[in-house]
Design a protein around this nucleic acid. Structure first.
Lengths: 211, 211
DNA sequence: CTTTTTCTCCCTCTAAAGGAATAGTCCGGC
DNA sequence: GCCGGACTATTCCTTTAGAGGGAGAAAAAG
């Protein structure tokens, strides 16, 4: 089936859990057509190792110490526009998916995927074919229909999620309480929430904030 | 070092991510003194397989489909008080840790633990010695100094976290709005929060609610 | 250079949330 | 039987949030 003479797919794994790296490494190295060339335990390391090894595929966890997945995607792609990045994470919020894919990641899959699906995804991405399961694609499409929050609104949302009052938020951002309220109002409208607490729930579910 | 004639430690792995199970299985099976006898992908399966195999150790993820880790700990230990359960999870909220350990889990460790630590933990738990890293132990102690929420307060907190208003909460729980406020007030006091949104943030960080 | 978006600030008004204190009922433990 | 915790409910009062507007300045997009 697999061409014996073909060069193996060179893979870097980036995940902060040694157990997950072991699992992936075992799976990958058992395949005749691929091999793990390096493993990273955080975002910084992922970027460094990509530079060093220039692999065919990098499998990336979204939440990692030092620099999170989205930031790694951004950095690597701006230096290597042809990089094939496969996001592999437990988070299925539409915002995470949207951010990664719109920034140029070639694939996005969830950690509860079966072994075969993971391997197929790596092979697809290695050939520069995008890999997106139907459920993930659906979320990305959902997200596109929703209004985006501005940077300032995200700043405010972050503070709202920490339980800060409008007055408190205003003080921290050096704006008036009225302005803080204006931003909160915009957030509620865009997230279709009737209270700040609901807005936090929605934003969290969508992966817009990290608590 | 390891006695060759000694019976191997029989381990069951319960985690909803195939990748994690693979990683753990590989690590465990490489050791001369232990072996994986079964793998479960959800809570129900974990309970069933424990009954069937009666392993020396069961390694449990906290968040699993169908039945979560705490519930599995409860069920297995009420049928087998001597069961050696090792919790392995990404969540380090004091409530999770406290619940598991106080219900009789023998160990609790985080998924970012190094390989050696994981194996040591399995060996410790297999010999009925509790395994608790210092950071985890510290959180359990912290939790003991904090007031517990009553069941009703947890019900209310869950609804608060979904963004419901006091009136809404009252309707859903068939109580008056005043009573809902009383509960919310008690929650704020116990969690040392000044607003419901902060209470949600605190509760989430402590692992008291699942969003 | 326009146009649009973003960020800022302002107003009024109503509804909701939160602080403080009190109290009756029920249930389980001692 | 008594006591304490849990759940329920109440009243009074203050503060905060949120709905509904409008509006100017700056920055980004066209």
């Amino acid at each position: 089936m697999v061409a014996v003479l073909k060069r193996k797919i060179r893979v870097i794994l980036a995940d902060d859990h040694p157990v997950v790296r072991d699992g992936l490494a075992t799976m990958v190295n058992q395949q005749p057509d691929m091999e793990v060339v390096a493993e990273a335990g955080d975002g910084e390391e992922a970027i460094t190792l990509y530079e060093q090894h220039q692999p065919d595929v990098m499998v990336l966890d979204l939440r990692m110490p030092k620099r999170d997945g989205v930031a790694v995607v951004q950095r690597v792609l701006e230096a290597h526009p042809k990089a094939c990045l496969l996001i592999m994470t437990t988070y299925d919020g539409d915002e995470d998916i949207f951010q990664c894919l719109s920034q140029g990641a070639k694939g996005y899959l969830l950690k509860d995927a079966r072994r075969q699906e993971i391997l197929s995804a790596i092979r697809a991405v290695a050939e520069d074919r995008p890999y997106t399961s139907s459920s993930v694609a659906a979320k990305a499409l959902q997200r596109m229909a929703k209004p985006s929050l501005t940077q300032r609104e995200l700043d405010v949302l972050q503070l709202v999620a920490q339980g800060r009052s409008n007055k408190d938020i205003a003080r921290r951002l050096s704006i008036t309480e009225g302005t803080a309220k204006t931003h909160v109002k915009a957030i509620l409208t865009k997230l279709d929430a009737i209270s700040r607490t609901e807005a936090v729930a929605v934003a969290h579910k969508r992966g817009m904030i990290r608590l």
